[in-house]
Design a protein around this nucleic acid. Structure first.
Length: 288
DNA sequence: CACCACCCCTGGACGC
DNA sequence: TGCGTCCAGGGGTGGT
């Protein structure tokens, strides 16, 4: 559920609270949410193609133990905490992942806890464990192993980028926009909202989308993402910021989650169906 | 290669 | 109240 705006909200919260601090101790409660060098592809127990090898214990330094936090980066829906040593921990929130600062102990589904020099606690929690942590020895390794495979960040997407991505693609535009290797950061909510704002049916073949529509879509997507970031993430059920606060419901979703209800623009009943394996909502009158 | 179906996981909503 | 069932969905994998 966390999409780009929620992840950016977390990034800003982390940057403000942990950059410049040193990590005193790292405790791993669940090894299988972590992937490090030497782990089988996909990590331990993250796919059914598991090996018999016992997972190697994660060294504290791999999770920035003893390191000073230098920066917190984001690409699409992924975060990276960068240490002064150059080491990097990439954080995926998946559906229900959270990074909390100063949370109480005894939380359920807390998989990794960092304690900083000043005593501040940092926790990675994830009930469904679709998220995880990926450790790299450098930012360059993170990029070559992981981020280079992602498309351009949706917050800065341009009409030209979208035209390139849509060209000759025989897939519904919704599926293309959800594909992180083509555009990074959009999930189900913001794709539906952006397509509505641009008047494009989610089922349209990407290659049939005109250059003018790509321009509208790039503009609307950036605007919607920017507004959502300013509002602290759009918040569905379980998203919370680094201090556990709910992201305000200040941004009403226009189509997402409103199937069967009247379109806010023209009052036509919103339709819903599966597109690209995702529940998709649109207005049959406003979108063509 | 491109596309797509399926699976991972758990909490919350809902029906009886 | 409590139990069962369904659904949410990012992204990895394997099949077509």
């Amino acid at each position: 559920m966390p999409e780009l705006p929620e992840v950016e909200h977390v990034r800003q919260g982390l940057a403000a609270s942990i950059v410049g601090a040193r990590v005193r101790r790292v405790r791993v409660h669940r090894r299988d949410v972590i992937v490090t060098d030497g782990d089988p592809p996909g990590g331990f127990s993250r796919s059914r193609r598991t090996t018999d090898a016992a997972p190697r214990r994660v060294r504290s330094s791999e999770l920035l133990g003893g390191d000073e936090i230098r920066d917190v980066l984001r690409h699409g829906k992924q975060l990276a905490i960068v240490g002064a040593s150059g080491r990097v921990v990439c954080v995926h929130l998946g559906m229900t992942g959270r990074v909390l600062v100063g949370a109480e102990s005894g939380m359920t589904h807390e998989h990794v806890r960092w304690t900083l020099e000043d005593g501040t606690r940092l926790s990675f929690c994830d009930a469904r464990r679709f998220g995880g942590l990926w450790c790299y020895d450098s930012e360059a390794s993170l990029r070559s192993a992981r981020w280079d495979a992602l498309g351009p960040d949706a917050l800065h997407v341009t009409a030209k980028m979208l035209q390139r991505v849509f060209a000759s693609r025989a897939r519904p535009i919704k599926a293309v926009l959800l594909d992180q290797t083509l555009v990074a950061g959009l999930g189900n909510i913001y794709v539906d909202e952006s397509l509505f704002a641009s008047g494009i049916l989610p089922t349209r073949m990407a290659r049939d989308v005109t250059d003018g529509e790509s321009r509208d879509l790039a503009r609307h997507a950036r605007r919607i993402l920017r507004r959502a970031i300013r509002a602290g993430g759009s918040t569905l059920r379980d998203f919370v910021g680094v201090e556990g606060q709910k992201g305000g419901y200040r941004l009403r979703h226009i189509v997402y989650g409103r199937a069967g209800q009247p379109c806010r623009r023209c009052r036509t009943t919103l339709e819903s169906d599966q597109v690209g394996q995702r529940t998709t909502v649109w207005c049959p009158s406003c979108q063509t």
